[in-house]
Computed example of a mutant assay.
Amino acid sequence: MTTPLPLHELDDLPGHYIRRLQQIAVGIFMDETQEMNITPVQFALLFAASQQAGLDQRTLAGRIGLDTSTIGAVVDRLESRELIERKVSPDDKRVRLLSVTPTGHALLQSVVPAMLRAQERMLAPLPADERSQFMGMVKRIVEENNGWSRAAKDAG
């Protein structure tokens, strides 16, 4: 005998809608940036690395909320496209410091307008006066639940 689940529809679950929203956000980003051949995670990594040259992979992973095992593969792909470079740290030979190359900076500059269009499209269903309220709520949910992530974002 099976016990019925205590819910009526997947549509009643915030996790279901959050997962769907993430799929939609990636789809819109990829649609807007298809000519640039960049993913949302690659964009986040390049953008964060461009803000402070010489960060190590672990610190950069913490800044963008990416697990340390995944960041290596993302850096590998960006390095193979000559968008980012790794250099051995003078302080610790086991640590690799990341810098965005001139080609990477040029790609970032070209991606920004498309990325901003994607953000606008994601929020388009909301009236303009509700967008900041929505973003405030999403940020609060993410920040207050950050510790539950397999790749918690560093506060700094």
Rank of each mutant, 00 (worst) to 15 (best):
M1Y: 09
M1L: 09
T2D: 06
T2P: 07
T3R: 06
T3F: 06
P4M: 03
L5I: 11
L7N: 03
E9L: 12
L10M: 13
D11W: 04
D11K: 09
D12V: 00
L13D: 07
P14D: 03
P14Q: 05
H16A: 14
I18R: 05
I18T: 12
R19Y: 04
R19G: 06
R19A: 12
R19W: 07
Q22E: 14
Q22C: 12
A25E: 13
A25D: 12
A25L: 00
G27A: 13
I28Y: 05
F29V: 11
M30V: 14
M36T: 02
N37Q: 08
N37V: 02
I38P: 04
I38F: 11
P40N: 10
V41W: 02
V41I: 14
V41T: 15
Q42V: 01
Q42P: 04
L45E: 06
L46D: 09
F47M: 09
A48E: 07
A49P: 02
S50R: 01
Q52E: 14
L55Y: 10
L55N: 15
D56T: 04
D56L: 03
R58A: 14
R58H: 10
T59S: 14
L60K: 06
L60Y: 06
L60S: 02
L60N: 02
A61C: 03
G62N: 07
G62P: 01
L66A: 09
S69A: 12
S69W: 01
T70N: 12
I71M: 02
G72S: 14
G72K: 09
A73I: 08
V74S: 00
V75I: 10
V75E: 01
V75H: 05
V75Q: 04
L78E: 09
E79K: 14
S80T: 11
R81V: 05
R81W: 01
E82S: 14
E82W: 08
L83S: 07
E85H: 15
S89A: 00
P90L: 05
D91R: 01
D92F: 04
L98G: 08
V100D: 12
V100S: 06
P102Q: 07
P102V: 07
T103I: 01
G104W: 07
H105S: 13
H105F: 13
A106C: 05
L107D: 00
L108E: 04
L108W: 00
Q109L: 13
Q109D: 15
Q109F: 08
S110Y: 00
S110R: 15
S110H: 12
V111Q: 03
V112H: 13
P113Y: 09
P113L: 09
M115W: 14
M115N: 08
L116K: 08
R117V: 12
R121Q: 12
R121A: 11
M122S: 07
L123G: 07
L123Q: 10
L123K: 13
A124E: 01
P125K: 14
P125R: 10
P125C: 07
P127V: 02
D129R: 01
E130R: 15
S132Y: 05
Q133E: 13
Q133C: 01
Q133N: 07
F134M: 13
F134S: 11
G136E: 06
M137C: 03
V138E: 02
K139Q: 11
K139L: 05
I141C: 00
V142E: 11
E143Y: 03
E144L: 15
E144G: 01
N146R: 14
N146Q: 05
G147K: 04
S149I: 02
S149K: 03
S149L: 05
S149V: 03
D154Y: 11
G156N: 11
